[in-house]
Design a protein around this nucleic acid. Sequence first.
DNA 1: TCGTACGTTGTACAATATACAACGTACGAA
DNA 2: TTCGTACGTTGTATATTGTACAACGTACGA
Lengths: 249, 249
Amino acid sequence: MSAATETPKPNLLELLWRAAPETGRGPRKGLTVDEVVAAAIGLADAEGLDAVTMRRLAQSLGKATMTLYTYVPGKTELVALMIDSLFTAMTMTPVEGRPWREGLAAVARDNYALYRAHPWAAAASPGRPPLGPGQCAKYEHELRALEGLGLGDVAMDDALAYLLAFVRTAAQDAAQSEAEREATAMTDHEWWQANGPLLAKVLDTERFPVAVRVGQAAGEAHDAAYDAEHAFAFGLERTLDGLAAIIPG
Amino acid sequence: MSAATETPKPNLLELLWRAAPETGRGPRKGLTVDEVVAAAIGLADAEGLDAVTMRRLAQSLGKATMTLYTYVPGKTELVALMIDSLFTAMTMTPVEGRPWREGLAAVARDNYALYRAHPWAAAASPGRPPLGPGQCAKYEHELRALEGLGLGDVAMDDALAYLLAFVRTAAQDAAQSEAEREATAMTDHEWWQANGPLLAKVLDTERFPVAVRVGQAAGEAHDAAYDAEHAFAFGLERTLDGLAAIIPG
DNA sequence: TCGTACGTTGTACAATATACAACGTACGAA
DNA sequence: TTCGTACGTTGTATATTGTACAACGTACGA
């Protein structure tokens, strides 16, 4: 075999950009990468990322398990493709020409909505996603909310990464507390009845005066369901205030 | 059997506070919960949380796999115990009486150091950890950095949660980028040589003018190793500026 | 027309958490 | 002192997981 002929295992970047060289030999492909990714997203949305096993995914597509490996080198790459696909399809509220604070708030809310709609993505997406088409379009769009404010290029990137990290974490925490609440087959009353005595014994105000006082106040203020949304609203204002400190004018 | 006799499966809270009722019947226990947790932490520190399997952990303790289930109801609870143990042992820089900004910066740095030393904990610890002894002591200590500043109790809790979420995410992103760099058996030069042509084709400045410009500047400014620490330093200042907006005076 | 590149698939394997039952230890009551 | 039993320990077993491998058949290019 010549060196030019050997098929290099498809790179993640090539896959993201759908730049795999087609050879035309052998049987026709029965699926496309997009179909596989779309089915995987549907499964993850419906039952969580844990439900996306190669077996179940293949079954939902009417193919054998190992067939998937024709389209995707492995599960890691599949998840990367799923996330980039989300980015490609996400709603991006127009931000250009608006006051910077409004624009960044819109960016944050779009991201929050995305991760709340697809909680598995918040947990799986890394701080710096690979440069797929979705990520690039998203990055371009979001940077424009920071363009023309007098920030240097590096500061623009820093600021955006900072904002996005906050949103992703907020959405992740929200999803997690929601999941815990659903998983616990216990009402708040039952939980307190079960754990109250121990906590009362152990949380004495001698050792933890501030913690007990503040914890009680916080617990009463937010009912658990509202907690996450409150944290997002609070954090968003703080984050924008923090960025204001480096934005001239 | 009478209802009073049945042994209720040990609660996570009881376990955290080591409040399991001792009966004294049957053979002596060959281990303690603390030994199990300490061994698990050692394993996680050395080889990551994935290496902490019930088999390997039991083996490192010289016991059979299922023996662990005498000490811990399951792996979920084990991880919670590991994290609370970390909290108990973490260094807590004194903060009382110092200017609030210094105190909060110290809190942030202590947390960052903890999660950088135990990267698995950053990934595994939830936004609101269970009320174990470690978490309670930590919460008490950290709240004191916010005490007496004119904030209401609820705002104190909000502010602390906001700061800690930032730190945890920053440490997590740092660990992840570090892990990726080590896992990739490729120098930056090799990577660019492999992926450069595709990226050059696909990242045209027509579609992504701002992204290409800013991305290039950011890429050149931070070499990957320094990137994470820079993001933490940048984000910490922004976070403190953001909190300054709600701290009177 | 035919060789071969490649899509498809069944089987196989190593690894996971943990359910279950057998076994033996040592305490508490007699 | 004796004996029943609560409980610590352990081996085996099961349902899952991702994916390596080899057999098989299809359809393009020479």
